[in-house]
Design a binder for these strands. Structure first.
Lengths: 136, 136
DNA sequence: AAACAGTTCATACTAAAGTACCAAACCACT
DNA sequence: AGTGGTTTGGTACTTTAGTATGAACTGTTT
């Protein structure tokens, strides 16, 4: 948030400076007034593009970012979360076990705990719930 | 695509008109040159915002839209697709059967066919593949 | 009318998934 | 040194999921 304010401040200062510089350039005859207008137009065009991209990006990130707080709220451990990611990749318990170098039994324990923490009956339902919570 | 060209053409024409009008306004003394520059800046700022939003929106839509062609290419039938949606909602075969008013056996048949068409070993893998193909 | 694709359903089976319960080992903290 | 949370893993069991096969019933096309 502080970063945004600083960027905005610098932007406004830069633009004011540009205005003043262009005014002096026109008065002193170094530049044609049409050229100045063209530069102003181009600069503001890109300022518009830039600010729009920034704001849209934030929205996008906000809706796609992983909600780490929610993971903690649900009391999901590191290992359980890794298992959840394995499920979302479409892996079987056995395959997840091989990936994490533990036995299938261990994965079953994690999955069972995950399901109760996510209040799900099946792994597919767990995926749907996890997506709703933005934790995967 | 034609629409885009027309919009762009009109936009450029409008901007050129604005340029000429502002020039005459300054010469005839109706408007201060600083006001003209401010107007140009604001207009181009919003042109930048508008064009950026347009292009980003298209990208977003393109990546989120369901690829109906891909569904046909994979030879997935209407009913099979409904079952796929049921799976993505985290339902069991039995629950999907109740939702579509058919027996669990029927759902099993559909699921089995779906898996072979999607080249998946499990329903969770089918979900992952279907997402990659943008068909759910 | 015959062929065809899609849907429906059943049986019988194997393979995964999931539950319940227990137990040991580990790490961090006090 | 003991407590608590996490991770690990086993056994035994029930429930879903998935496969294979066969069969009947729909529309649609030729």
């Amino acid at each position: 948030m502080r970063k945004t304010i600083i960027v905005f401040g610098l932007l406004i200062l830069g633009l004011l400076l540009l205005f003043q510089l262009s005014k002096y350039a026109v008065i002193s005859g170094d530049l044609d007034s049409e050229v100045v207008i063209a530069i102003i137009a181009i600069v503001f065009f890109f300022v518009g593009v830039y600010l729009n991209k920034k704001s849209l990006h934030k929205q996008k990130v906000a809706s796609e970012d992983i909600n780490h707080k929610k993971i903690k709220d649900l009391d999901i451990s590191k290992r359980e979360y890794e298992v959840l990611l394995g499920i979302s990749e479409g892996l079987s318990n056995k395959e997840i076990g091989e990936k994490l170098f533990v036995s299938e039994s261990t994965i079953k324990t994690h999955v069972s705990n995950l399901l109760s923490k996510l209040n799900a009956k099946r792994r597919t339902q767990a995926l749907q719930i996890a997506k709703d919570f933005n934790i995967i």
